[in-house]
């Protein structure tokens, strides 16, 4: 995709790269390293943690827990960029850019667990709601101390 106007813009944007705009943007994306993914994952995990601590609605807590597990997925996929490549290189003794998807398989397990937890959790919340007519966790107060 060679576009003159984009070419002009990219030159204007990024003189030393000298590519077109898409290339420039691609370069930017390439600079998104594993650290960026890990940071995003850490932020998502923290948001989930915060949600579990702060929210009083059981459904919101459930959603926050799902957020935490999704941060884990992001972590696994990001780390797989390093380790998957290493495993491939060790196995094929070549420099192929093929990822061995070990971390991605772990992600699938986490997704399954998250789905099972969500299903069971929603059922429990509904059962609780039917008796107490509330999904607020502070209404789960029959037993204390």
């Amino acid at each position: 995709m060679d576009n003159d106007s984009l070419y002009f813009l990219s030159n204007w944007a990024n003189v030393e790269s000298g590519g077109n705009a898409l290339l420039t943007m691609w370069n930017i994306f390439k600079h998104i390293s594993i650290h960026h993914y890990l940071t995003v994952a850490a932020i998502i995990f923290t948001i989930g943690f915060y949600g579990v601590i702060v929210r009083r609605n059981a459904i919101s807590i459930l959603m926050s827990i799902e957020l935490m597990l999704n941060a884990v997925n992001l972590n696994f996929v990001a780390f797989n960029q390093i380790w998957g490549l290493k495993i491939t290189r060790a196995a094929f003794t070549s420099n192929e850019d093929v990822l061995t998807p070990v971390g991605q398989i772990f992600t699938i397990f986490i997704i399954i667990i998250a789905a099972a937890e969500a299903a069971v959790g929603l059922a429990i919340v509904i059962a609780f709601y039917r008796q107490r007519h509330s999904v607020k966790v502070e209404d789960a107060d029959l037993m204390r101390w």
């Binding site: 995990f45 884990v72 972590n75 780390f79």
Partner: peptide, 10 residues
């Protein structure tokens, strides 16, 4: 637990 495991994997 899962987050810890992902870090160990990393």
């Amino acid at each position: 637990l899962a987050y810890g495991i992902s870090l160990i994997y990393g």
